[in-house]
Design a protein around this nucleic acid. Structure first.
Lengths: 170, 170
DNA sequence: CACAATTCAATTGCGCACAACTAAATGGTG
DNA sequence: CACCATTTAGTTGTGCGCAATTGAATTGTG
């Protein structure tokens, strides 16, 4: 196929892609990703309204429901979030009565995040959420799985590249 | 293949997927998307540091470079952003000397965003950015194009579903 | 044991995303 | 023309994401 390397995909030109073409917005994968991420945010906002959760708060609850009580550090590793994001978020979850935060007695640097009764109970009501989301995507399970795998590959590559680029920067 | 509909993909069980399994974090497409989006953000942060732009600011500049001067409204349509996001962002771009904002004389509700000399000149330095990003993904152009198409499908479906869900909510 | 390096959570500051609202200009209809 | 709905930016408030810093607890090393 001629013009395989061309971003637009419709050209039959055998010439290499001009740098300017790469700048075209509609060819930017980043933009599509950004838009899809925000579209998810919009849908979750609607779906989670009943539960009184934001989307990132829901992700935190998912981790706690799956893994049980965890220190903030572990929670951050699961979610790739640091304390700058998690601390205020957890404070809001605590204010909502869904979790408690307790200094570990074994290691007083660490703070254990524990589900309350109410927080555990919320899981029942959340069981319907993933179904609603999956249905909304109009994708079947295999397609979702394939897309997810590609995205995870992407994330791995990008993380590595960011580290590399930062290293070169110094 | 047995267990085709099972989110984990490895089960040989012929039973339908329990709702609880859908909650498992690592099967949530949303999480992968969220992570990939932030990984992109991290890479762009490094790559754009030289240009003094954030990632959303870069997206705005891309639109202006491609389409020329635009009213805030049109800019928002291209980027799916509203004035609540764009107004302060554009103020920062103006403070950086990259754009000017001028009330339209034809329609005084509208504000035209115009590239300055400096803003237009920045394009030259930005030409290398997409290449660096694409290289970092470790994907070839066809893979990127395919992924982008899937993501755009997703965005379309999600947007529609969000509207639908909001409608049912009332 | 003493001291330096590390770990962990919290805080601060900045920018983005979005809902809700305000204010001004415009357009349409009686 | 007068009135009202609509359009367009801007503002306010809330929450997320991340860099940088702080402070306390722990660990490692001589």
């Amino acid at each position: 196929m001629v013009g395989k390397g061309y971003p637009g995909g419709m050209s039959t030109s055998p010439t290499p892609t001009p740098a300017a073409d790469w700048l075209r917005l509609d060819q930017q994968i980043c933009f599509s990703l950004h838009a899809a991420s925000r579209a998810f945010g919009g849908l979750y906002r609607v779906v989670l309204k009943d539960l009184g959760l934001t989307y990132p708060q829901y992700l935190v609850m998912l981790v706690l429901w799956e893994h049980g009580d965890l220190p903030v550090k572990k929670l951050g590793e699961h979610l790739r979030l640091d304390s700058g994001t998690l601390s205020p978020l957890l404070k809001r979850l605590e204010a909502a009565g869904l979790v408690r935060r307790e200094r570990s007695t074994r290691d007083e640097r660490s703070v254990e995040v524990r589900l309350t009764e109410e927080g555990s109970a919320l899981r029942e009501r959340a069981l319907e959420v993933p179904r609603r989301i999956v249905t909304a995507t109009s994708f079947d399970v295999d397609e979702i799985r394939a897309l997810r795998a590609r995205l995870d590959d992407l994330t791995t590559a990008l993380d590595e590249a960011a580290v590399q680029a930062a290293r070169e920067d110094s």
